[in-house]
Amino acid sequence: MEEEHAVPHEEPEPRSKRVRSQPTHLNDYVVSLPPSVTNSQPGSSQANSTDEKWRNAMQQEIKALEKNGTWTLEELPEGKRPTDSKWVYKTKFKSDGEVERYKARLVAKGFTQMEGVDYHETFAPVAKLVTVRTLLAVATKKDWIIHQLDVNNAFLHGDLDEEVYMKIPKGFEKEGETRVCRLRKSLYGLKQASRNWYKRLTSFLLSLNFKQSKADYSLFTYQKAGIYVAILIYVDDVIIVGDNSKKIQQIKQQLDDEFSIKDLGPLKYFLGIEVAKTKDGLVLSQRKYILDILKDSGMLGCRPSAFPFEQGTKLDKGEKEARVDATQYRRLVGRLLYLQATRPDVTYAVNVLSQFVADPRKNHL
């Protein structure tokens, strides 16, 4: 009888001991992380219902929502299911790093909504990047005013057509209370919030004699008595350009009376693009946006590279499946980002478009 040879037992490969840490873009927020994640924030900055600054922030948010008529307290009808909500906390800083204020935002848990019952349409158009560049090119060539606006609590201005109910926010329930909040206006987190806000803003601009572009539904133009004003919308960020400062100021005031806006003055930063006006035109740069990505990915200290791939790299047929080496992809991403970040800051697209507007017969591209 042949002896059975014991098959050597293969030890499983040890699991990675990589320390998981909180993404840097969450540093300004108060979050609750599992024990396996190293939190870079000190424990004292975590949300605590007994902390006075966060309690005050929550009180201010509730007062603003009630003043806006966001909901009414009603008994829950039979067959209806209320949506839950949560609090999101963020610390707002000034440009010098000093704490400006503590902000608490009430967010509905929209993922529990049922399509056809709690919401129907959700799509809301946003400005196309080509429209942004074209509008800036025309405004630069004609030396128009280029300003930026920000709408405070934009989603709260949309009216709800559906019958949506939400539980009373945590921390504000009364003992024995059986009523729930029937939402009369949109709330952050609802699936239809962005669409309702866009619909409300569109209706208001049309009432001011603006015309909506058929090529880009986020572009609205006003032209009367030799005055031209254009408004471009990207959710709650608004670019307004025109050739008449008095009319622009009037429109700003009308928007503020209706929605409460923040006038940010001349356009400086929009959708991750830095904007600077010079004597030669308008300069666009995404350097800050790229560096922010590098910082979030922990690759800010990587060396610049003039080309994305390492020299001599060859692609195989993939017949032998090998374990994926994440560091290879990290190096590739770093190279691609640095390829952009190390380019000159000046972007010539606006100047080229300006020349094209001046003389379309010439091919500048």
Rank of each mutant, 00 (worst) to 15 (best):
E3G: 06
E4K: 13
E4P: 04
V7I: 13
E10G: 04
E10N: 06
E13W: 08
K17P: 00
R18Q: 15
S21N: 09
H25R: 08
D28F: 13
D28S: 12
Y29N: 05
L33S: 06
L33H: 06
L33F: 05
P34S: 13
S40V: 11
G43S: 15
S44N: 05
Q46W: 06
Q46L: 14
N48R: 11
M58A: 07
I62F: 08
L65V: 11
G69F: 05
E74C: 09
P77Y: 15
E78V: 13
E78H: 13
K80F: 05
S85F: 07
K86Q: 13
V88M: 12
T91S: 12
K92D: 07
K94C: 07
K94S: 10
E98W: 00
R101M: 02
K103T: 07
K103G: 03
R105G: 05
R105S: 09
L106P: 00
F111C: 08
T112R: 11
T112S: 08
M114T: 12
E115M: 07
G116R: 06
D118A: 02
D118N: 10
E121D: 12
A127W: 04
V132F: 03
V132S: 00
V132T: 05
A137H: 07
A139F: 08
T140Q: 04
W144Y: 14
W144L: 10
W144H: 13
I146Y: 00
N153E: 06
H157E: 04
D159Q: 08
V164S: 01
K167Y: 05
I168Y: 03
G171S: 07
E175S: 13
E177R: 07
T178N: 06
R179T: 15
V180F: 07
G189V: 00
G189M: 01
L190P: 00
K191I: 10
K191H: 04
Q192I: 11
R195S: 01
N196A: 10
R200Y: 00
F204G: 02
L206T: 01
S207L: 01
S213W: 03
A215Y: 12
A215N: 08
F220L: 03
T221D: 01
K224D: 10
Y228T: 05
A230G: 06
I231T: 09
I233P: 01
Y234V: 01
V238T: 01
I239F: 02
V241H: 00
V241M: 02
G242Y: 04
S245P: 04
K247D: 09
K247I: 09
D257E: 11
E258P: 00
K268R: 15
G272V: 12
I273R: 03
K279V: 14
G281A: 11
L282W: 03
L284M: 09
S285L: 03
S285Y: 04
K295D: 13
P304R: 11
S305M: 12
F309N: 06
E310R: 12
E310D: 14
G312C: 14
G312D: 11
T313F: 10
L315M: 09
K320W: 05
K320S: 14
A322N: 15
R323Y: 05
D325G: 12
A326W: 14
A326F: 13
T327N: 15
T327Q: 14
L336S: 13
L337C: 02
L337F: 12
T347R: 09
V350L: 12
V352K: 08
F356E: 09
L365D: 02
